[in-house]
Amino acid sequence: MLSPVVVGVDGSAESLAAAEWAAREAARRELPLRLVHAWNWHPRQGEGESANAAQRHLARRVLRQAEERVRAACPDVRLYDEQVEGPATAALLTAAEEADLLVLGSRGLTGFTGFLVGSVALGVVARATRPVVLVRAGEEATDEHLPAHDGTASARTAYRDVVVGVDVSDSCDEVLEFAFRAARRRHARLRAVHAWHAPFALGLGPGEVGLVGDPQQADEWLGFLSAVLQVWRDKYSDVEVVEQVVKGGATDALVRAASGASLLVVGHRLTERLVGRRTGPVTHAVIHHVGCPVAVVPHT
């Protein structure tokens, strides 16, 4: 069986928007969609069976609500569901291992809701070995597309750009491949963004890029970015690529670039530590501040 797109649902507006986005993505990938609801069972003394039954009833209602939203948005998607006992982080990580992609709802600056409470959702993103996409409440199919000629929202127009953050000193095949594939599936333009800082004078050596002015430095960084992307442009020759270098912090550059995008793709380096794993500062910041769906792609 093909690995499905998996989405965690908890009945919140964020998770329902995530379920609809996941259904559209499953259709783009020609994969089945699996809805997962995770719940923790902490019965008080003497209430074990009744508490268990109540939790299962609630889970069934949450899954049915998500199914109805998915069927209305994508009636042809192959759909199945599952309720699992928590801990929620472990349950979602297990689901992610069997998935082509895991999708979760996100509240951005106000945190995560339902069973996706702050540390749980961030723990999933930090520890997952498969890509995770975070989707905000209110995300609709038309938000992925450019407006129609009359300025109205439409799901029939071309897709907005896919944006990928690229560190030319530590480029990552997994992140770039995910971004190029996402752009190809959407027949969208891919915008590759690299942020750079002028080096401190004391750290410069003869002939280094920091010895020239900002325009020349920008050209040098653009050359590095082009070199990193060339093999992928050759592999995905049907994808239009725009290369952008920005002086300043990576977070600000990606937040600006993602404004009006259909998807932002960022990387997350997995460490060898089994505990205390967390997302890097740029990834952590963009998943709280970017309005469009954010794909976090793990790599080593």
Rank of each mutant, 00 (worst) to 15 (best):
L102S: 02
H284F: 05
V297D: 03
G165Q: 05
G210R: 06
S226H: 11
V242L: 10
D100P: 00
G207E: 14
V265M: 00
A91F: 03
S12A: 09
A59L: 09
G165P: 12
G280H: 03
I287M: 05
T271C: 05
A179V: 05
G205D: 14
V168E: 11
S169F: 09
T300D: 10
R256N: 13
A295G: 02
G213P: 03
A155V: 02
A72C: 08
V266N: 01
E174F: 00
A96S: 14
T271R: 15
P293V: 03
E30G: 01
S169W: 02
H194W: 05
A91K: 01
L92Q: 02
E68V: 07
L116A: 07
A141E: 15
R269G: 04
V168D: 11
A22R: 07
L2N: 10
A128T: 08
S154Q: 09
A99F: 01
V164M: 04
G207A: 14
R24D: 07
E82N: 04
V296I: 02
W39L: 11
V209M: 09
R127T: 09
L222E: 13
L109K: 03
V117E: 12
A121W: 02
P75W: 05
H289Y: 08
F200Q: 12
A54D: 11
L79S: 13
T271Q: 15
A22D: 11
E144H: 12
R136D: 07
E97V: 00
E98T: 10
G111C: 02
V209I: 08
V164C: 05
S106K: 07
H284I: 03
Q45W: 11
A155D: 13
A17D: 11
V231G: 06
S15F: 07
Q230E: 15
A295M: 06
A257Y: 08
A182L: 04
D252E: 15
L274I: 06
D214K: 12
V297S: 02
E240W: 00
G205L: 09
H42P: 01
P43N: 09
A59T: 09
L58T: 12
F178I: 09
V255N: 03
S259G: 13
E140R: 15
A99R: 02
R233P: 06
E14P: 00
V168T: 15
G138V: 07
R191D: 04
A121D: 03
R127Y: 11
R278G: 06
T113E: 12
A23D: 04
A183Q: 04
H299K: 03
Y80T: 10
P215E: 15
A53G: 07
L211T: 13
S50I: 13
V242S: 11
A137F: 12
P215N: 09
D143F: 05
E220S: 12
V265Q: 00
E47H: 15
L33V: 02
E177C: 06
V255P: 01
T113G: 04
D76K: 13
R181Q: 08
L264F: 06
G46R: 09
A22V: 10
A99C: 08
A121F: 05
R34V: 05
G165S: 12
L35S: 08
